[in-house]
Computed example of a mutant assay.
Amino acid sequence: MKILAIDTATEACSAALLWNGAVLTREQVAPQAHTRLILPMVNELLVQAGASLNELDAIAFGRGPGSFTGVRIGIGAAQGLAYGADVPLIGISTLQMLAQGMYRRLHTENVVAAIDARMNEIYLGAFMMQDGRMQPLLDEAVILPEQAPEWLNPVATKIAGGSAVGTGFTSYTELAAKLGLIPTENQVELNLPWAQDMLPQAVAAFEAGEYCDPSLATPVYLRDKVTWKKLPGRE
């Protein structure tokens, strides 16, 4: 199988290529440089593999939640590449990527992932390993950190003693302990999502026919309302 994965939803900018069983990666922590970096990363991977876009089976992208601008950059790049290659798109949750990354590094099978959503909120998801892939235990949510115990209560026994990962936990340093979770070491790279961790989900989705035309790809912001400062003349 041949799948390209790209993600720009957070401070991390990354691309990964699954090419006949081998996984090639490009990764960089690069706030505000995603537009400049993501397409050269893709080109480097294709050159390294001796591959071309039109040989791909599908392209996976980080659909969010994350930075509004970052999510839009990722989906825009994915759509442009998919149109050029005439291949379908597969959207993968950024929180699910974080959880899958924990399994890749530490083989942790129950993970709570949280991303700092600003505005004193976090994006939160709970996952458990099944068939080699992190599967959601609850619908993802954007909530206040203090609401996390109540939100996670229905799956408390399943996540007990599991790992906490993501910038939601590094920003709110006491939250993991309050949830009875083991915090991830406070290193930037360990608490960001990386494109290579989309690949297990993307392969399963492609095999199940769960992909879409590029025109139908949609981001996931979780926030229903965003407060915008009104500009003069636009009240």
Rank of each mutant, 00 (worst) to 15 (best):
T35W: 04
H34F: 06
V42S: 05
R26F: 06
G21K: 11
D116T: 03
A30M: 06
L56W: 11
D86W: 02
L81C: 02
G50W: 09
E44Y: 10
L53P: 03
D116F: 06
T94K: 10
F61T: 02
P40E: 14
L89F: 08
G70S: 07
D57L: 04
A99Q: 06
A114F: 12
E44K: 11
V47S: 07
E27M: 07
R72C: 00
G70H: 05
G80C: 08
Q32H: 12
L81T: 04
L39A: 04
T69G: 01
V111A: 13
E44N: 12
L53I: 00
P88A: 08
G64R: 08
G62D: 04
T25V: 14
V112R: 05
R72L: 02
L56V: 02
A77N: 04
L39C: 04
Q48K: 13
I115H: 09
S52Q: 13
L95P: 07
V87G: 04
Y83G: 00
R26T: 00
M102S: 14
R105S: 13
H107M: 15
G62Y: 01
G84V: 00
I59R: 10
E27D: 13
G84C: 01
L81W: 10
E55M: 10
A49K: 12
T69P: 02
L39K: 12
G62H: 02
M102I: 04
L106N: 15
R104N: 15
E27I: 02
T35D: 09
P40Q: 13
I59C: 02
E55N: 10
Y103N: 15
Q96M: 09
T69Y: 08
Q32L: 07
N20E: 15
L39Q: 13
L81S: 03
V87S: 05
E109R: 14
G21S: 11
T94P: 09
A114Y: 12
V71E: 00
L53V: 01
A22H: 13
P88W: 12
A30C: 06
T94H: 10
P65G: 07
N110L: 05
P31I: 03
L89T: 02
N110C: 13
G84I: 01
T25E: 15
G84T: 10
M97V: 09
G101K: 08
G66V: 00
A30N: 08
H107D: 15
V29E: 09
D57T: 03
V29M: 11
E109D: 13
T108V: 13
T69N: 05
S52M: 09
L53K: 14
A114R: 08
A113I: 03
F61D: 02
L46W: 11
F68C: 00
L106D: 15
E55C: 01
A117F: 04
G101P: 05
I73D: 01
G80L: 08
G84Y: 09
P40D: 11
S67Y: 03
V87P: 08
V71K: 01
G91E: 14
A30I: 05
E109K: 13
I38L: 14
R118H: 15
R36V: 12
I90Q: 06
T25I: 10
V23L: 13
N54H: 12
E44S: 14
